[in-house]
């Protein structure tokens, strides 16, 4: 017998085409409730096109990411503060474009979004957060998270199953005691692995146990590239959409994840 299904995703990054594809995919697989862990803007074209898919939708719950906090509060930049002037240059282009092209009503909506979700799925206490349970802008990369650290995060947060996003690269780990941490990756940009697909997490609750699968989603990335060029977004961003390799703002990547990419 099929269990109850949910979907968890994050990192929309203005990509309305992959958002639509993800929502369709999750619903077609029977997800009853969908959870978006934030970062609606940045990177992609036409920011306002994602909001009709996200706002006032019965089966969808949306949380605030750090980018949403900045855009919602009309801050001057994304506060990434890179060392490499090139990274700052590209981050600012992306931020200014998103700030300028997000309607006030959507900015106000972003500003008031919640910061966490708690659920009980099967026998698991579930916590969803943008970066980590401690901080909205903490990166949880797979190669930088010792088992002992994750166990301590879960204990402090009184959770058995944690979902986060913020890094853009998905991974999941079950600890020896059965608790689990899942980074759902991002649906707005491919995960720096040379594939053009994007990722979300599909959850199945069955016999009080929870199974999580990272699901790749294909979407019309050629059409997104066309829109990005039409909006005169940097060719470096378009390259990422077309190749699956990250080209800018790589400084935040740990050594291991950086070495796995092309740049």
């Amino acid at each position: 017998m099929k269990g109850t299904r949910f979907a968890v995703f994050g990192g929309v990054y203005n990509n309305h085409l992959s958002l639509k594809a993800t929502l369709d995919d999750a619903r077609s697989r029977g997800a009853q409730e969908l959870f978006c862990l934030g970062d609606m803007g940045g990177f992609g074209p036409n920011p306002d096109r994602v909001f009709p898919l996200l706002r006032d939708v019965d089966d969808l719950y949306v949380m605030q990411g750090n980018y949403d906090h900045s855009i919602g509060n009309r801050l001057d930049d994304c506060a990434c503060g890179y060392t490499d002037p090139r990274d700052n240059h590209f981050a600012q282009i992306s931020y200014d474009y998103t700030l300028e092209n997000t309607a006030d009503t959507h900015k106000d909506w972003l500003k008031q979004l919640p910061g966490t979700f708690r659920k009980t799925w099967g026998r698991r206490r579930v916590l969803m957060a943008h970066g980590s349970p401690r901080r909205i802008n903490e990166f949880l990369w797979e190669s930088m998270c010792p088992d002992a650290f994750l166990a301590s995060l879960l204990t402090d947060a009184e959770a058995d199953l944690l979902f986060v996003t913020h890094t853009g690269i998905p991974w999941k780990r079950r600890l020896p005691d059965g608790r689990m941490v899942v980074n759902v990756g991002a649906i707005g940009r491919p995960a720096n692995h040379g594939q053009t697909t994007v990722d979300y997490a599909l959850v199945e609750v069955k016999d009080r146990e929870v199974e999580v699968s990272i699901m790749p989603v294909a979407y019309d990335h050629q059409e997104l590239a066309r829109e990005m060029r039409e909006e005169k977004l940097p060719e470096e961003f378009v390259e990422t959409v077309l190749t699956g390799w990250w080209t800018t703002c790589l400084e935040v990547l740990p050594a291991k994840e950086r070495a796995a990419g092309k740049y």
Partner: peptide, 8 residues
């Protein structure tokens, strides 16, 4: 440090 849940 591992007992304290060290990160790095």
């Amino acid at each position: 440090a591992v007992e304290e849940g060290v990160k790095e």
